[in-house]
């Protein structure tokens, strides 16, 4: 369980959010939604230990995996080397086969298609021994087919290794397709925190996001 108590983040005089109190259940997938600039990525950065904050976070994890929207693969390393660099004690072949990228294991990132690169990035997050997986708009800017394939891969990987997942998304469809819980940040506070498995969730999310 990850517990955020009165978490506040501000840059100089600009308060991004304050009094943030949320619990993230272990082995559950939580989506963070909200307008651009509401602090979704900042929250991920706080959880990843990349930025300072006020308040307290109780956590039971040491390592964090992170899926970035821009993949961030090391350009001069092959797919295999990019994966080995985060975990050298693992047989990659089953993972590469599972993600259907075994044939490109010796390719460099610039030789990969966008979909392949996303797969590698996702696979890196799962082969890294971590309990928490953070994803910053992992399915943005992908065409529908590619997105569905990637979501499918994510679900399959997660079924095999149920990490606690917190991801940022702007797409209600993606959130309802993947997440167990949804949290909306609005006006510097938590405006909604609900389970996704309920009948009127789509309406709740839409209302929360659109009402002034």
């Amino acid at each position: 369980m990850i517990e955020l108590k009165n978490v506040k983040k501000q840059y100089d005089d600009n308060v991004v959010f304050e009094n943030l109190n949320i619990n993230f259940e272990n082995k559950q997938i939580t989506a963070i939604m909200g307008e651009s600039g509401c602090g979704k990525t900042t929250l991920l950065n706080i959880l990843a230990g990349l930025t300072d904050f006020d308040g307290t976070i109780k956590k039971d994890y040491d390592n964090v995996s992170f899926v970035f929207n821009d993949n961030r693969l090391i350009p001069n390393l092959t797919v295999e080397q990019n994966l080995k660099i985060v975990n050298n004690n693992i047989d990659l072949t089953p993972f590469l086969k599972f993600a259907e990228i075994e044939n490109v294991r010796n390719y460099y990132p610039k030789q990969l298609s966008s979909g392949m690169a996303h797969r590698v990035s996702l696979l890196r997050a799962f082969i890294y021994p971590s309990d928490l997986l953070l994803m910053d708009e992992p399915f943005r800017n992908l065409d529908v087919v590619l997105k569905l394939k990637l979501i499918n891969l994510f679900k399959n990987l997660w079924e095999k290794d149920k990490k606690t997942v917190i991801f940022v998304s702007h797409s209600i469809e993606d959130v309802l397709n993947i997440a167990d819980n949804v949290v909306i940040i609005k006006n510097k506070k938590i405006a909604l925190s609900e389970k996704c498995k309920q009948k009127n969730i789509k309406k709740l999310i839409t209302n929360c996001l659109t009402k002034e």
Partner: peptide, 24 residues
């Protein structure tokens, strides 16, 4: 910087950061 941030998150060894990320 983004690549270095990735290295920090995945706790990539300093030796690897220098030789596989920075020097190239």
């Amino acid at each position: 910087k983004d690549l270095l941030q990735m290295c920090k998150i995945y706790k990539i060894k300093n030796k690897d950061i220098i030789f596989k990320v920075c020097i190239p």
